[in-house]
């Protein structure tokens, strides 16, 4: 096979892997949007907050240490223990559930039946609040996250492809793990949605709040549930991105990458978020590889947004968005 084709194949594979990470972030948006019609601007910051909490718990950091030290004149920084990764993840999930409950109790519950734009504004406020809370709890320094996920280039793929084509593919181990975890997550979420009583209630709430209330489904419970799920997805996304490029403020900006994914896949479809992510991932890598040289490169920065714009014009509900059922 000619080198160009092989290289394109490698780029495609890498694009798929990057796409999975985009999908993970987009998934968090879809969950909340579907169930409550809220576009959660804070999703990216939630990923940052979750990742920072995870690192903090693993390292045995004292939460709010700066604040405590400033008030009481103490010099606390670390508990002096290290928590194993798995336990830390479980604890972080707990923190995200408490956060979901607080968001519902203190913010969203008071905004029932308000305009979408008001709910959206509330999540912007939430984003800034969480950003500050994350800094206050765990400090604003750049942290490395190591939960024992494999790093580096996968040797097996490199060797096998080299033997077959005389050209070794470079695929990151972390990307492979991320892809597998994302796939499992999506399957679990879809099964939950489709086959459990709570999942059915969740879809019912997504369709019609009032009717859901009338059959005795508690909106409060459902919304805590979706915010918890979104928090969990944010944790997984934060873990993957954090392991790749460190836990720092820029982690919250991955939310921006999720926007074109949502436009493509549709705001209301879980499979859409996945496929949309993959298309954007592969698309931007291949575009950079094939067209990039002709226009002077750096197409990765804008490709996704232009694609999203085209979709907004020609197919606003996205590839998989729920069709608006209109009876005549």
């Amino acid at each position: 096979m000619p080198d160009q084709v092989l290289f394109a194949m490698e780029v495609t594979l890498n694009g798929l892997m990057a796409g999975v990470l985009y999908s993970l972030v987009a998934l968090g948006f879809v969950l909340i949007f579907k169930a409550s019609g809220i576009f959660n601007y804070a999703q990216g910051v939630m990923a940052l907050f979750a990742a920072a909490t995870l690192v903090g718990i693993m390292d045995g950091q004292v939460p709010f240490s700066h604040l405590i030290n400033a008030i009481f004149g103490t010099d606390l920084h670390h508990f002096g223990w290290h928590v194993p990764a798995l336990l830390a993840i479980v604890l972080t999930v707990g923190v995200m559930i408490v956060l979901a409950w607080l968001v519902q109790k203190l913010v969203m519950r008071h905004l029932v039946n308000q305009e979408p734009i008001i709910l959206f504004m509330a999540t912007i406020g939430l984003a800034y609040f969480l950003e500050g809370l994350s800094d206050l709890m765990w400090g604003s320094s750049i942290k490395t996250l190591d939960v024992g996920l494999p790093q580096g280039i996968n040797d097996t793929i490199d060797r096998v492809t080299f033997d077959a084509f005389g050209y070794g593919f470079f695929i990151d181990n972390l990307d492979i793990v991320a892809a597998i975890i994302a796939a499992l997550l999506v399957i679990a979420l879809m099964a939950f949605n489709q086959y459990t009583k709570e999942g059915r209630a969740l879809r019912a709430v997504a369709d019609d709040h009032q009717a859901a209330l009338s059959v005795g489904i508690s909106l409060n419970f459902i919304w805590v549930l979706v915010w918890s799920l979104a928090g969990f997805v944010a944790l997984v996304a934060g873990m993957m991105w954090g392991a790749k490029s460190g836990v720092q403020f820029s982690l919250s900006l991955i939310a921006l990458k999720a926007l074109p994914v949502l436009m493509l896949g549709g705001f209301t479809s879980i499979p859409g978020a996945i496929v949309g992510g993959l298309i954007i991932g592969v698309g931007e890598k291949l575009f950079e590889f094939l067209i990039g040289p002709m226009v002077g490169g750096a197409t990765e920065n804008w490709f996704a947004y232009v694609l999203a714009l085209l979709f907004l014009v020609f197919r606003p509900q996205g590839l998989f968005g729920e069709k608006i059922i209109e009876r005549v």
Binding site: R203, D207, D208, Q210, A211, S214, I325
Partner: peptide
């Protein structure tokens, strides 16, 4: 409720 209010996508 008035106007049925079925869950359309279910």
């Amino acid at each position: 409720m008035e106007g049925r209010h079925c869950f359309e996508h279910l």
